[in-house]
Write a protein that binds this DNA or RNA. Structure first.
Lengths: 194, 194
DNA sequence: TTCATTCTATACCGAACGGTATAACCTGTC
DNA sequence: GACAGGTTATACCGTTCGGTATAGAATGAA
């Protein structure tokens, strides 16, 4: 009774989904490692899929809100992109395992249940970033409808940085420094305008 | 009897692993869609894991050899990186589904069986690319031991291009043009030297 | 003809899967 | 003292999973 069981289950699910993948992680095991029985798990989450959905919602919602705010265009593409990348970096620092789980799901098989669950989240993320380029195009002249391509590329680049940081530095607290963010954005924009 | 059953099984496995993921794809279904019974599948591949291994070997080996050749340093970092990226592009054009399967596995959960299977392939790939930077450092001065980081970044960037191409153009024949490859390499090196 | 290879059909195995039913227990609130 | 929310233990459900046992049939080479 000390801690919130529901929260513990979510935390354990995050650990296992991250380490083994959604399909390979068993409900039984999640319950056991949470110090809880299976009926308790099903008392809070009506299915394994529901568990993943709730996990994505509870951890993803704050991230999406923060990112959405950071994506507000302030008449400066470079600055806005830095803010967006900074929001991702902040989040990845606070919740490294969840961030990496998102990456894995982002690249996972399209017909897999787990991908269906992240899809709405991914779409909102893409939409927010794309909006930056849409608004920038009003200021900077048309982008020939390549906003989508730009946003995909930018997201991919930020993800790449995350994974690299994780690969070289270990799991605890992925952080991208301010200088690195500016360099990344510079590199990205240089690519765009050349 | 007309076609090679073993090859058909590999092809079907590629399709299903790609579409649904390794864990979610069932052996039974692979056998059925190959027009073959389960014992036949097990006659060629002693386990599901063995099937994945053989798939990675049969499709991956030619790719790795081609890439290895392309990674031979010719006193010109820029040119060598273009050659390496070109080898990836060629391969992705010929075998788009396999290339995308590799990407998904590359980013998948570390403790998953499937990741264990790609690991040797990934290590060889990384090693070949890293070798480019090692040899270049002899010519261009030391890189402060950042060869690994550079190779990870370069690989990630090429992968990002693949996924973007796939996302925007559909699945049949991912191709990266010569100009795009040069731009990509330029962008990457600009990032390095700034 | 013999023989190995390739493959079939069918049927089964034990284990694990996701999920549920039942019935009782604790704890705090009203 | 009644009641609701949270939780337990236990046992079970049907299904699917990866994998196998058995016994035989087609094929082509020696």
């Amino acid at each position: 009774m000390p801690v919130d069981n529901r929260e513990r289950i979510l935390e354990t699910a995050l650990d296992l989904f991250y380490a083994r993948g959604y399909d390979a992680a068993g409900v039984q095991e999640i319950a056991e490692k949470s110090g809880v029985t299976k009926p308790t798990l099903y008392y809070y989450f009506k299915s394994k899929y529901g568990l993943l959905e709730q996990l994505l919602k509870s951890r993803g919602e704050p991230f999406l809100e923060q990112l959405h705010a950071a994506c507000a265009y302030r008449g400066d593409l470079r600055g806005t992109l830095c803010a967006a990348a900074g929001a991702v970096s902040d989040f990845a620092k606070r919740e490294p395992r969840f961030a990496l789980l998102l990456v894995a799901l982002f690249y996972s098989a399209r017909d897999n249940e787990a991908y269906q669950a992240v899809r709405p989240l991914v779409l909102r993320l893409q939409g927010d970033v794309e909006e930056i380029f849409n608004e920038a195009s009003a200021d900077l002249g048309n982008m020939n409808g390549r906003q989508r391509q730009f946003s995909l590329g930018f997201i991919g680049l930020v993800i790449l940085y995350l994974v690299m940081k994780h690969e070289t530095e270990g799991e605890k607290g992925i952080e991208i420094s301010g200088e690195e963010i500016e360099a990344l954005v510079h590199q990205f924009m240089h690519g765009i305008y050349s």
